[in-house]
Design a protein around this nucleic acid. Structure first.
Length: 434
RNA sequence: GCCCUUGUAGUAUAGCCCGGUCUAGAAUUCGGCCCUGUCACGGCUGAGACGCGGGUUCAAAUCCCGCCGAGGGCGCCA
């Protein structure tokens, strides 16, 4: 068996499909050269593809095949499976032909073997090459698994995946600064949340979710903020805030279960063991939180927002996942619903992991007149929300929802504290390229 | 916007505090030679760096100032 056509780049096997029972069989596989050890008249190379790593042995006449070959180059190998004396492989491939499909230049900007860990700035500047580092690759394989798990859990519960616009025409919602852009002569903005659109969708789709990038023009320099982040959002008709808290909790538990059981290799590469958190998550009301803080000699008036330092103190008492519920109405956006027994409190929650805010959500107002009143109370102009408010006159079901920062969830999952590690090409105030 | 830390070969680092020992050291990578079972292969050998500009000093990688870059934190953050 020989390579018949040089332009052919196909393989007969992925590396994970090779095994010792195939001894004597000719195979064609490909990948990049991880390591190359020449021992006089024989040589060993280790070749990796996305599924695994394999040792290739070259000797005798075949030694000439190694000419010009270097680490990180992409090769296609034709060879015969044979038993191996190697420590980490129980079979190997004896090379008959080696085709260099793409040569890696020297010097490369980072060392992807990972013997020497390059610092994050260098790795982000060479992010594609960083994917050859198995630690980095594992993070993104896990991220893919996490997304699949979230979709699976939501679809099982009759949620429908939607895509809302990222270019929007109105910036009048208040809160975080938006990125402005020119839209054929009109002022437009990048969406910071799908909030209004996902609420509208409950009118006919009832249970919707979206997983997408959103944008905030805040000059935040921390390990947990990005200008472009991935948000998981849900909105569900006929569910109260405690119902969507349950949905959120089961999503988180499923994510931890799925990855911890099915991603052993990735955990090994990262050097971190994913542990499924115990459930149900603790639920602490804002009022209880004030009491807890008070017992730590931190006095906060009712209605005051919890600062980062306060959340850090609370996080010490509640180091894992917990819900912080029933926030004062005055701290919440206009669309949040008050509680029946105390209109100064809201049917709202944050999901915390220690001090880190992962998600916030709540029951929404669905009565258009109440919404108009609340807009005025918050010094917002109802007329600029008419496009939104008119949908509430068409039979808007009561509904609740939340948004969760996927990137932050990823950092919690793998026990790191910089969100840039789990985002391919992070955007922050100081980083726009690559 | 504010504060702290930091910048030495491709990578990751030693040296800086306390100026002269630096002709800047070890590792890895890359080149050459040797090596038929390596597995972070080994041996010999070669190449490769003090972010930029100014200052202090007999003397600056080392001290000071400015600029640029980087990392972290605070604040901001439906």
């Amino acid at each position: 068996m020989y390579f018949e056509h040089y332009m052919d780049i196909s393989r007969t096997h992925l590396i994970e499909d090779l095994n010792s029972s195939m001894e004597g069989k000719d195979v064609i596989f490909g990948g990049w050269v991880v390591d190359l050890r020449k021992l006089g008249k024989m040589a060993f190379l280790t070749v990796r593809d996305v599924t695994g790593m394999c040792q290739v042995i070259v000797k005798g006449d075949s030694m000439s095949l190694l000419e010009g070959l270097n680490r990180q180059s992409v090769v296609r190998i034709l060879g015969k499976i044979q038993a191996s004396k190697a420590k980490d492989f129980d079979f190997e491939v004896s090379a008959t032909e080696i085709q260099v499909l793409a040569k890696a230049e020297y010097p490369l900007p980072i060392d992807p073997i990972g013997r020497l860990e390059s610092d994050i700035d260098n790795r982000l500047n060479s992010r594609a090459l960083d994917m050859r580092n198995q630690k980095t690759a594992s993070i993104f394989k896990l991220r893919s698994k996490v997304l699949a798990s979230i979709r699976e859990t939501l679809i099982k519960r009759k949620f429908i995946e939607i895509n809302t616009p990222k270019i929007i025409g109105s910036a009048s919602e208040g809160g975080a600064d938006l990125f402005g852009l020119d839209y054929f002569g009109q002022k437009a903005y990048l969406a910071q949340s799908p909030q209004l659109y996902k609420e509208q969708m409950t009118i006919g789709l009832e249970r919707v979710f979206e997983i997408s990038s959103f944008y905030r023009a805040e000059k935040s320099h921390t390990g947990r903020h990005l200008s472009e982040f991935t948000s998981v959002d849900i909105e569900a008709a006929m569910m109260d805030y405690t119902d969507v808290m349950d949905v959120l909790e089961s999503i988180v538990i499923d994510v931890f279960k799925n990855t911890s059981e099915n991603c052993k290799t990735e955990q090994q590469e990262i050097g971190y063991e994913i542990k499924v958190p115990s459930s149900p998550f603790e639920r602490v009301t804002y009022t209880q939180a004030l009491e807890e803080l008070s017992s730590m000699d931190i006095k906060i008036e009712f209605g005051e927002d919890l600062q980062d330092s306060h959340l850090r103190s609370l996080g010490e008492k509640h180091p894992g996942f917990f819900f912080l519920t029933d926030w004062p109405m005055k701290l919440k956006p206009f669309y949040i619903h008050e509680k029946d027994d105390d209109p100064t409190l809201s049917r709202s929650f944050d999901l915390q992991y220690g001090y880190l805010e992962l998600s916030s959500g709540g029951r929404r107002l669905h009565d258009p007149e109440q919404l108009r009143t609340r807009l005025k109370e918050q010094d917002l102009d109802p007329t600029s929300f008419e496009e939104h408010l008119k949908t509430f006159g068409w039979g808007m079901p009561p509904h609740s929802g939340w948004g969760m920062g996927l990137d932050r969830l990823m950092t919690v999952l793998i026990g790191i504290d910089n969100v840039r590690e789990v985002v391919l090409y992070p955007r922050d105030p100081d980083r726009l390229k690559p």
